[in-house]
């Protein structure tokens, strides 16, 4: 049974999202936990993992395009399934008056650049090689008092 994947609300203030990268193509099998797309919100670019299983039947927007929260992002179902009825029904329903035209006329953004993302997304990844839980250094002055409770 085909199911609609809506544009998720990935931050409390997000009203629309841009798909900056699709990680699945139509016809691909998608499993719960698979990375479906990278979505640019008002705050940052977030990875969106599917929480549904199925074959990707339809992508609602292309890379670089925006669509409102709750509009159709994708449809998952069984291979070869006809998704048109469920898509029509959804678009007729809740998302109609303001959101529908917007979803169709959304302007493709010219290549969303990484440097357009807000500052939070730009913090450089820090290698944290020293922060493994299994490696605890015991300062010399603590040797008597501290019981080391590490279990491998």
């Amino acid at each position: 049974m085909a199911q609609i994947v809506k544009m998720p609300k990935l931050s409390d203030t997000m009203t629309e999202g841009v798909v900056s990268k699709w990680h699945k193509s139509v016809g691909d099998t998608v499993k719960n936990g698979d990375l479906l797309a990278e979505i640019e919100t008002d705050k940052a670019t977030m990875e969106f993992e599917s929480f549904q299983d199925g074959v990707l039947l339809y992508r609602g927007i292309e890379e670089g395009q925006a669509t409102p929260v709750d509009a159709v992002l994708a449809i998952l179902g069984e291979a070869g399934e006809d998704f048109q009825p469920i898509l029509d029904e959804y678009n007729k329903g809740a998302a109609k008056p303001t959101e529908e035209p917007k979803a169709e006329t959304a302007q493709p953004k010219a290549e969303p650049k990484a440097d357009e993302a807000p500052a939070t997304a730009e913090v450089k990844a820090q290698p944290a090689a020293e922060s493994k839980p299994a490696e605890v250094k015991k300062p010399h002055y603590l040797k008597k008092k501290v019981q080391v409770l590490m279990v491998a």
């Binding site: 931050s11 919100t41 990844a125 820090q126 493994k132």
Partner: peptide, 17 residues
Amino acid sequence: SMSDPAKYRTKEEVEEY
């Protein structure tokens, strides 16, 4: 939190844990 893309750490680090 839900709106944190966690770009301050590497994917390798997450996988290690």
